[in-house]
Simulated scan of single mutants.
Amino acid sequence: MSIKFGMIGGGMMGEALLSRLVVQGIYLPDQMLVSDPQEKRRDFLAGQYRVQVTGQNRAAADASEVLFLAIKPQIFAAVSKELESETRHALVISILAGTPLETLETAFPGQPVIRAMPNTPAAVGAGITAIAPGQHAQPHHLDQARQILETVGEVVEVPESMMDAVTGLSGSGPGYVALMVEALADGGVAAGLPRAIALKLALQTVRGTAQLLQEEGIHPGELKDRVTSPGGTTIAGIAQLEKSGFRSAIIEAVKAAWMRSQELGGKR
């Protein structure tokens, strides 16, 4: 059977997508070819998902429908050099942080290209991916990209000018949330809770709050006001967060990641 879906880079994000594509039947395993330099990783992916594997990037790039780039942006120049001198027509979907459409389209002349930024909750099908189409991408290419990326969560379309900001917020955001969960649990331990109980309470508090905000469609400030009774415990805690610059720290973290994404794309 011919290879329809090629992937260069079989890391965590690539694996998350592979697993969902297989489970949801978007592609059959023998229609998918994953290129990765590590033999151990190739063996794992082949054994776990029954997909085809190779150490040759060119073979994955020759897929007939989609080429999915899931490598580190620092090695893109070397990988793209391997793929020169062939005419291809497959849709290219790139999740390389900071790598602009202009760079991608230079490497894949004439091919439709879509730049995407998913995040790590994609591993459990709860991610969100922002996409920005290149100049050769047509509506049916966007539909195809959405079908693929919706297997790991929600998809939103944004102008490419916003992609670095997306990277700073949702792309890097799981790291900030994980740090907050850890800090909440540490606070519980400091207040006398056993570690396992503190972590469970912290995790479900974050998960439930996000679900409540999403399902009721309310502004975070409204929910905060609901749970802060006069002279109560929550307002005491919030006052301390404000004193410690919690809000400012999160804003600055997003901005720092946004600027780093721009640096990776050669904009700074």
Rank of each mutant, 00 (worst) to 15 (best):
G9D: 15
G11C: 13
E15I: 10
L18D: 15
V22F: 01
Q24N: 06
G25F: 03
D30K: 04
D30R: 14
M32D: 14
V34A: 07
V34D: 04
Q48T: 14
R50V: 04
Q52L: 12
G55N: 04
R58Y: 03
A60F: 11
A63Q: 05
S64M: 08
L67Y: 06
L69K: 09
A70C: 12
P73G: 09
F76I: 12
V79K: 11
S80W: 01
E86I: 09
A90N: 15
I93N: 10
L96K: 08
A107I: 05
A107W: 06
P112M: 11
P112C: 10
R115W: 04
A116N: 03
T120H: 01
A130W: 09
P133N: 13
H136L: 07
Q147W: 01
E160D: 04
V166M: 14
Y176S: 04
A178E: 11
L179Y: 09
E182F: 03
E182W: 03
E182Q: 15
A183W: 00
G187V: 04
L193S: 04
A198F: 01
A198R: 08
K200G: 03
K200M: 05
V206W: 07
R207T: 03
R207W: 01
G208N: 08
Q214F: 12
G217A: 01
L223Y: 09
D225P: 06
S229G: 06
G232L: 02
G232M: 04
I235K: 05
K243Q: 15
A249H: 03
A253W: 10
A257H: 08
R260M: 07
Q262L: 08
G265D: 09
K267A: 12
R268G: 00
